[in-house]
């Protein structure tokens, strides 16, 4: 088991003919993801070819067409910022169930409207935007993360579920887990923007209910109060061991630290408050980014 994606997931790429969309579709194919097509308006009818994989995929003008022709249920969005929110809404309207938006730099109000639009499509899930994507190691990778650092769960083996607001910091965490021999069930980059599709709480619930997931690693950062809410949720509803790390303990207030959502404003969003809330909920918080894997080990040991 895993959450949200596995080897049967049929995926298209919106923005497949662009540089990044093309490169990463190719990388995902090499990893084994079942990509079945792509969408680029005005380029419908052509065949896309992966440079390294050599695989060919049909390109469509609209997501609706792509879904009809391929039966895709998931989409990886690489559309540039100005059109990305529209691409997300198009995917939902066309019947895509899982939308993974990689694009960075979408205006906040565009995402606010897109997220409200998605409310009329129950069962449609958006991951991101401004995220590395989602991976179930050994089965399905939809995103830009390096595949080989992950460790798939063997048959009857349990693993760690990873939830993160960041990209390379997630790779760092996964690398540490793999080095400690801890396999991962699914790793989800939820995105660094102020408005994101899937929240930490929703994923905590999915991992709590996934029998293969043994422990959860939550990687947060400054800005907003999502980690405080997640901590409260863990205290009430999560029985599995949870470890966490919060980036930005040394970030000054009022400055946006790279991610649009990583800003301490009006006295809220501080790392110290998040860490205190997580610890109060019994979560093992790593003191430094070098200790994320160890924190998971400690959390596992405590529950045994």
């Amino acid at each position: 088991m895993s959450i949200l994606v596995d080897r049967s997931t049929r995926v298209i790429c919106q923005g497949i003919t662009g540089g990044a969309g093309s490169f990463h579709t190719d990388q995902c194919l090499l990893y084994g993801t079942q990509f079945v097509g792509g969408v680029t308006p005005k380029k419908g009818g052509m065949m896309w070819k992966g440079e390294k994989s050599g695989r060919e995929l049909p390109v469509f003008n609209t997501v609706a067409e792509a879904v009809r022709a391929t039966g895709a249920t998931a989409s990886m969005v690489f559309v540039p910022p100005a059109g990305a929110a529209d691409a997300i809404m198009e995917a939902a309207d066309a019947g895509i169930r899982l939308i993974v938006a990689i694009t960075e730099g979408i205006p906040v109000l565009d995402m606010a409207k897109a997220k409200r639009f998605l409310k009329s499509f129950p069962g449609v899930r958006l991951i991101g935007p401004n995220c590395p994507g989602i991976i179930t190691p050994g089965q399905c990778k939809i995103g830009i993360m390096p595949g080989p650092i992950h460790k798939p769960c063997g048959p009857n083996e349990r693993g760690v579920g990873v939830i993160s607001r960041s990209g390379t910091l997630t790779y760092e965490a996964v690398f540490q887990l793999t080095a400690l021999g801890l396999p991962q069930t699914t790793c989800v980059g939820i995105g660094g923007d102020p408005v994101i599709g899937t929240t930490q709480i929703e994923l905590l619930e999915l991992f709590e209910n996934d029998p293969q997931t043994e422990a959860i690693l939550l990687i947060g950062e400054i800005g907003g109060t999502a980690e405080e809410q997640a901590a409260e949720y863990v205290a009430r509803h999560v029985k599995k061991p949870v470890a966490a790390f919060i980036a930005g303990q040394t970030a000054p207030p009022g400055k946006r630290m790279g991610h649009a959502g990583a800003i301490i404003s009006g006295g809220s969003g501080k790392a110290q408050d998040k860490i205190a809330a997580l610890q109060k909920a019994g979560i093992e918080v790593a003191p430094t980014p070098a200790d994320m894997g160890l924190a998971v080990q400690k959390a596992l040991a405590k529950k045994k």
Partner: peptide, 29 residues
């Protein structure tokens, strides 16, 4: 480049915003 000036003495060069923040934190630690 995403750059923000701070008060300390150790310059940092990192790829990715989350890892960049975490690197500042571990220097401080």
């Amino acid at each position: 480049l995403n750059f923000i000036q701070l008060d300390g003495t150790i310059g940092c060069l990192v790829n990715g915003a989350g890892l960049a923040m975490a690197t500042m934190d571990i220097i401080n630690y």
